[in-house]
């Protein structure tokens, strides 16, 4: 199947000489939720801005559903919706007017039923006649999403969509993103809330200093880079780790009361059952077990540290 978005060897060097993107290549499929992670200034917004036509690329090629973003920009842009990071709104316009404006701008004829549906989906229907300046920050964020959805895009860029919004709105957005994905809309999400990416994304991309360091299925990423930690609270303290357990990646706490086993999530439960069997055979009793699995955040921080 043809990818909905194909980025090939994309680079961007700004006028001052700052290199924002270095030879980035990426393919996204229809209906997937892709989380693009990276520290501030990594190149996330530049990448989005180039795809949307806001920034000129220095080199490389971008296609949206097979349409080149430069030579066939009309067809390409008609398929894209963008929710920018900052709350950029027409303060003096009503919610309805600004959403209807967005639909027209993207070449779609007036469709009040569509706009009503979008506004209802985003709990904005009862605010449709309100001026945007009277809305809260969270509501303005919803308006930006409504504007991006007004023309029925096939790709939706959400640049830090939940920055500064409350828990209820965040959950509403997650629900909407899943619904859109189910309808075949591809979602590209940048976020600083890594639990959000962990919760939502099918695939994760990590970008740093303009370079796409990795693109991986979320589950594969968690398996490949994730770790599990088993803490065994011993019934009686040990002086040292018995030599029979030398093959295990074990550490003993300073007071000798906790044995800690660290193993990769890709190893399954074998290391745990091996260790527990060994403890039983060695006559070492324990009164409790505790496990912890590394989150995407842990993995992200480790990746950033390794490549610093």
């Amino acid at each position: 199947m043809q990818p909905i978005l194909r980025v090939e060897n994309l680079s961007k060097v700004y006028e001052g000489g700052f290199t924002a993107l270095k030879d980035v290549s990426l393919e996204l499929n229809q209906g997937e939720i892709f989380a693009l992670l990276g520290p501030n200034g990594a190149g996330k917004t530049t990448l989005i801005s180039i795809v949307c036509g806001l920034v000129n690329p220095s080199a490389g090629k971008v296609e949206v559903a097979g349409h080149d973003i430069i030579t066939d920009y009309r067809a390409a842009r008609a398929l894209i919706g963008l929710v920018p990071q900052e709350l950029k709104t027409d303060s003096f316009e009503s919610v309805w007017a600004t959403v209807a404006f967005s639909r027209g701008l993207f070449g779609k004829k007036r469709d009040d039923a569509r706009i009503e549906r979008v506004l209802r989906d985003l709990s904005l229907w009862d605010k449709k006649d309100n001026k945007i300046m009277t809305l809260s920050g969270g509501m303005k964020r919803r308006v930006l999403i409504a504007k991006a959805l007004a023309h029925e895009p096939r790709i939706l860029f959400l640049d830090e969509p939940t920055a500064g919004v409350d828990v209820e709105l965040r959950r509403d957005m997650w629900r909407l993103v899943r619904q859109l994905s189910d309808e075949g809309v591809t979602i590209i999400l940048t976020t600083h809330y890594l639990e959000e990416a962990e919760e939502m994304a099918d695939r994760i991309g990590v970008i740093r200093k303009g370079e796409l360091m990795l693109v991986e299925e979320k589950t594969a990423l968690m398996r490949q880079f994730g770790q599990k930690r088993l803490t065994i609270h011993l019934a009686a303290p040990l002086g040292t780790i018995p030599s029979a357990f030398a093959g295990h990646n074990l550490t003993l706490s300073a007071d000798g009361r906790d044995l800690v086993l660290v193993y990769g999530t890709g190893q399954g439960s074998a290391p745990v059952s091996d260790l527990l069997r060994g403890l039983a055979m060695a006559g070492i009793a324990y009164h409790d077990l505790e496990t912890h699995q590394s989150s995407l955040e842990d993995i992200f921080v480790d990746l950033m540290r390794e490549n610093a």
């Binding site: 036509g53 009309r74 390409a76 950029k88 709104t89 701008l105």
Partner: peptide
């Protein structure tokens, strides 16, 4: 005004010449 408040992004990203 759209340049000042930032809403120009929408016009520049639209399928419009």
């Amino acid at each position: 005004f759209p340049r000042f408040v930032g809403t120009i992004y929408e016009v520049l990203s639209a399928p419009i010449s």
